[in-house]
Design a protein around this nucleic acid. Sequence first.
DNA 1: ACGATGATGAAC
DNA 2: TTCATCATCGTA
Length: 173
Amino acid sequence: MRKKVLDKKFFDRSVLEVAPELLGKFLVRKYRGHEHASMIVETEAYGAAHDKASHARSGKTARNAPMFDGPGTIYVYLTYGMHWLLNLVVDKKEYPSAVLIRGLEGVTGPARLTKKLQIGKGLNRKTLGKASGLWVEDRGVVIEKSDIKKTPRVGVDYAGVWAKKPYRFVLKK
DNA sequence: ACGATGATGAAC
DNA sequence: TTCATCATCGTA
C-alpha cells in the first residue's frame, strides 16, 4: 500500500482546496508507542478571507495565534468548557485559515475524536509530523468529487451570511 | 430539550 | 472585573 506523509506544501493552499482534499486521507496519532490511523470523513473550512465564523474574525489573539503560524500547524482549543477540537492550519503565514477535523471513520464528532486519539492542549501550536506524534498520510484512497457532500457548517448560526456557506465537507459512504 | 463547565473577548 | 457566549456531548 502506498503511504505518503503529507508535507507543508499540501497545506500551503487555500482552505477551500485543502478541506475537501483531506477526505480519504488518514490522520495518524502516535502515543504510548503505538500508531493509530483513521480515515478522515468530515471536515470544515474556516478563515477564508473575512469569515465571521472563524476564530480569527477579531484579529490575532492568544487563543487563535496558531492560525497565523503558517501551513501544517496544529491548532487545538477548548470549546464549551470541556471539549478539545482539532484544526489543521492551512494557507500562508499570517493568513489565518484552518480546517476543522469533524469526523474520522468510526468516530463521528469533533470532540469525540480528540478524546479517542488523546489530543489536547499539549499538541496546540505544534507542527504536523512524526516529531509531534500527529500527522496526515495519503494511503492511496481515491475520492471522486461525486463522493463529497457539501453542507453548511455546524454550530455557527451566529455568523450571519457566513453560517450558510457550504464549507462543510462530508464523505459519502 | 437541557445541563455540564471554563476559557474567551467585549463591555463596563 | 464582570458577563454572555460558545466550531459539543451525553442524558432525559
